[in-house]
């Protein structure tokens, strides 16, 4: 926008220069060249001020509902919190809660599980999501219906779908066992949720069922922006499907992929409701996510400072990941 404006003013300058030849050089150098530009600047500054003014109520609301609670939970994580006669008492204790958390094997185990779960589940869901998106992109009929159906798992409340999956994976009368037994794949029901690998896979399946459609929808949005002629041109040049996918499709939907990965990582790292319902962190604490530890500390042990510290550590890990990831994929460059 601003480039066009400058371009227009330069054209006018040329006209000026032609008519007032006497001090043309100075006109080109500073006078007429800079006068409109500084006017633009003044206008920009004024409109910027007005913009800030107009958006400040909204910004204040955003600050109130995001920055204030975040700042407060950082403060909480540095305190010992006791309920007193007049509500909570906060005693500042510095980094004590962080030291306790970082010394706890339970916290490290939960961080390890959560990180592994994030890497595996996001990878699986991205691959499957891309597959689904490519299929829908090729569809000529019924795309709308399929898109609508895809939203169903995503729209279902996780606590409810988690409960359904716990019936499916039930070690006695579960549907999964029924199918395995009638097809003679196993002779007796398998107790999926009582070994760590089984519980991990059960979580992965239930999570993918819900989030593959989400990934697919985002990637499908990206696929729709690709000009079909590019495919035709690539075919003419003799490119096969694999080359088209890796050299045209994926580079062109990079923005969508980045969006989906960032969203999914943030969600996967904060996973709570699914293991809470499906495995309760078990067997033992094999599937206990970091968010479940926060819940235990806050709402079962009533240890607010410690819970806040674990939650801050989690947030920090996620922020570091997001920054590194966005930097690695040069998101700023690709915006241009």
């Amino acid at each position: 926008m601003s480039r066009h404006a400058n371009g227009a003013s330069l054209l006018v300058d040329d006209g000026n220069q032609a008519s007032t030849n006497s001090n043309g050089a100075s006109l080109i150098g500073s006078g007429s060249g800079s006068a409109p530009r500084s006017g633009t600047l003044r206008r920009t500054a004024r409109s910027r001020r007005r913009g800030v003014l107009l958006s400040s109520p909204a910004l204040a609301v955003v600050a109130l509902i995001t920055v204030v609670p975040i700042a407060f939970s950082i403060y909480l994580s540095l305190c010992r919190v006791d309920a007193g006669a007049d509500g909570f008492d906060y005693t500042f204790i510095g980094v004590g809660n962080y030291a306790t958390a970082l010394r706890s094997p339970t916290v490290w185990a939960a961080l390890g599980f959560t990180a592994l779960y994030t890497v595996i589940s996001v990878s699986v869901e991205m691959l499957l999501g891309l597959g689904v998106a490519l299929v829908i992109d090729r569809m000529t009929k019924g795309t709308g219906i399929v898109l609508g159906l895809l939203l169903v798992p995503w729209a279902m409340i996780t606590v409810v779908s988690g409960q359904l999956w716990s019936y499916i994976f039930n070690g006695v009368y579960g549907l999964a066992n029924y199918l395995l037994v009638v097809t003679h794949i196993v002779s007796a029901p398998v107790s999926f949720l009582s070994n760590p690998a089984g519980a991990f896979v059960a979580l992965l399946v239930a999570d993918s069922w819900k989030t593959v459609p989400f990934v697919a929808l985002i990637l499908f949005g990206g696929l729709r922006t690709i000009d079909r002629e590019l495919y035709a041109a690539a075919r003419l040049d003799g490119a096969g499907s694999g080359r088209i996918l890796t050299h045209i499709t994926i580079p062109l939907i990079r923005q969508s992929i980045i969006t989906a990965v960032v969203f999914r990582v943030l969600q996967a790292f904060g996973i709570f409701d699914l293991p809470f319902v499906l495995t309760n962190g078990g067997p033992g604490h094999a599937t206990q996510s970091i968010a479940m530890l926060t819940y235990n500390a806050l709402f079962q042990d009533l240890n607010i400072g410690y819970g806040a510290a674990i939650s801050c550590i989690t947030t920090l890990v996620v922020i570091i990941f997001a920054v590194l990831f966005l930097r690695a994929f040069r998101v700023e460059d690709s915006v241009d």
Binding site: S191, S194, N195, G282, P283, G284, H285, A286
Partner: peptide, 14 residues
């Protein structure tokens, strides 16, 4: 929690 998580680990053979 220390009791039920660890006993459950032993019961499930982990």
């Amino acid at each position: 929690r220390a009791v039920f998580q660890n006993v459950n680990s032993a019961l499930s053979g982990n």
